[in-house]
Nucleic acid binder design. Structure first.
Length: 474
RNA sequence: GCCGGCAUCGCCAAGUGGCUAAGGCAAUGGAUUGCAAAUUCAUCAUCCCCAGUUCGACUCUGGGUGCCGGCUCCA
């Protein structure tokens, strides 16, 4: 089954065709490390992780790069614009370099909690100044960029396809511009490659002047090129990156290298909160800690995100979060029941039946532009089938293997299910159950409940049913 | 003002020009139960509004309304 993905550039689904057979090189626009990323940011990063895991499951050798923007961009396009990283550092009364370190640590801790597999490289803008300068020089030499004093701008008229990704037209950009016109640019849509300001703290001495710093977009062009080559497979980001960021990247990279840049552009929709956007004024910009206060783990949030398709808007509410917690718990419970039903049986390869059908629909849903919502539905359908009609030990073993080696390796929603070194062994459980049964016969409810609590803390679930006692691990 | 996207059950969310519009969570009634949990049976939408195309539309077209995004750093 060949995966198909939606390409923002072509505005249609395309069968994935890697540049090199069985290899996928991809770049993700990462965070600007001036404040801890919020849950909306993490939607995009969770998507990148899903894509990577899925491609690897299909047998691709993936090379994944995510940048850390550790030099601030200007808050506007005027010469006296403020750098938000520098501004935040000033508010915190710390050095911007320290701020970058602090926030980066928080970011990586969050990624770890979310079960995101580390990218192969996390290049930082400030460590690639040389690569950026080289690229800017090339653009000047080839006539795509021009200097005005110590500033350098890209001439959008020098690259005819400018606007193709976003659907913008250069003339209309000018008409709708809300910015004050920067009179030193030849055209209002021209964008900065390099800026200079003696008041900046983070600045570099380069051929363009001694107080310069990179423009808004050049870091991604320079760093993707360094780690992935001039031409690579996939570039992702949030929908807000489409314009101007990715549009500008394409123009810079194609003009500087004179080769194609990226084949597949993928973008995630924004996360909404209570039907609207997150905003500081509404107080609904949440971090993972805010969710933890409501009893939801980072993996619960991951699950919540995966329940929706990445290109659709997701409406985050605490009610939906609670539902995700419950739903994921039920999935965990399902896994435990399968484990109990499978016993020591080895997982066979299947060619028919409910488990086989679940495997098929799961994979075909993901191949259809990563439709995680439909993929999860196939697992819940299998759960319903198991609960209503049961599964043979062999089928249960196959289902368990499917959950662990396909579902979880791609979706990463179960967490550590194998770290059970200090759990009770089956024999100990049976002994306690025997004692509890006796206690119940003696109507010693206190002892019976104490044993149940003890087992519960070891993540053993008991069920007293009309047909006797069953137990399984949660 | 100019571009683009979305609008499906209480909440979240798939999907299709035509059999019964996935799935999750919540809810309601019954069974089971020392209590609880779990389970179990049953119930739970006609797809924002209006007009049109069509034998037939929730699915296509036009208009309206609402929300989201881009045009400005932002996942």
């Amino acid at each position: 089954m060949e995966p198909r993905f939606y390409n923002t550039l072509s505005r249609q689904l395309e069968t994935f065709q890697p540049i090199e057979a069985k290899k996928a090189r991809m770049y993700h626009c990462g965070p600007t490390v001036y404040a801890r990323p919020h849950i909306g940011n993490y939607r995009a990063f969770l998507f990148a992780d899903l894509l990577r895991r899925f491609l690897e499951h299909l047998g691709y050798e993936v090379l994944q790069v995510m940048n850390l923007t550790d030099v601030g961009h200007l808050t506007d396009d005027a010469d006296d614009g403020e750098d938000k990283l520098q501004a935040q550092a000033a508010r915190d009364k710390i050095d911007p370099w320290v701020l970058v370190e602090n926030i980066s640590k928080l970011f990586f801790a969050d990624l770890d909690a979310l079960g995101v597999q580390p990218a192969h490289h996390y290049p930082r803008a400030t460590q690639h100044i040389d690569e950026m300068v080289e690229m800017v020089q090339k653009l000047i030499a080839s006539g795509h960029a021009y200097r005005v004093g110590d500033n350098v701008y890209f001439d959008v008229h020098s690259y005819a396809p400018y606007g193709k990704l976003s659907g913008n037209k250069v003339d209309e950009l000018e008409a709708g511009a809300r910015l004050e016109i920067n009179t030193e640019k030849r055209h209002p849509a021209d964008f900065a490659l390099w800026k200079s300001d003696p008041h900046h703290i983070m600045k570099w001495d380069t051929p363009f002047g001694e107080h310069g710093f990179p423009g808004w977009h050049i870091e991604c062009s320079a760093m993707s090129r360094k780690y992935l080559g001039d031409h690579f497979d996939i570039h992702t980001g949030g929908e807000d990156n489409v314009f101007p960021h990715h549009e500008c990247e394409i123009a810079q990279s194609v003009c500087a290298t004179e080769t194609p840049f990226v084949n597949l552009w993928m973008h995630t929709k924004f996360l909404q909160v209570d039907g609207g956007k997150m905003s500081k004024s509404l107080g609904n910009v949440y971090s993972l800690d805010d969710l933890a206060e409501r009893g939801a783990s980072a993996l619960d949030f991951r699950f919540l995100i995966l329940r929706a398709h990445y290109r659709g808007s997701v409406n985050f509410t605490f009610e939906a979060l609670t539902a995700a917690v419950e739903s994921r718990r039920n999935l965990h419970d399902f896994r435990g029941r399968l484990s109990a039903a499978a016993g020591d049986t080895e997982a066979p390869a299947l060619e028919s039946g409910a488990v086989f059908e679940a495997q098929q629909s799961f994979m075909s849903a993901l191949c259809d532009d990563l439709n995680t919502s439909a993929a999860l539905a196939s697992i819940f359908s299998l759960r319903t089938h198991f609960l209503k009609e049961g599964l043979s030990a062999a089928d249960a073993a196959a289902a368990l293997h499917f959950l662990d080696h396909t579902v979880d390796s791609i979706l990463g929603i179960f967490g550590n299910t194998t770290g059970d070194t200090d759990e009770l062994r089956d024999g100990d459980v049976e002994a306690l159950l025997l004692e509890r049964t006796q206690a119940r016969a003696d109507k010693n409810w206190a002892r019976a409940d104490a044993i149940r609590d003890e087992l519960a803390s070891a993540k053993i679930v008991l069920e007293d049913g009309p047909d006797g006692l069953h137990w399984h691990r949660a």
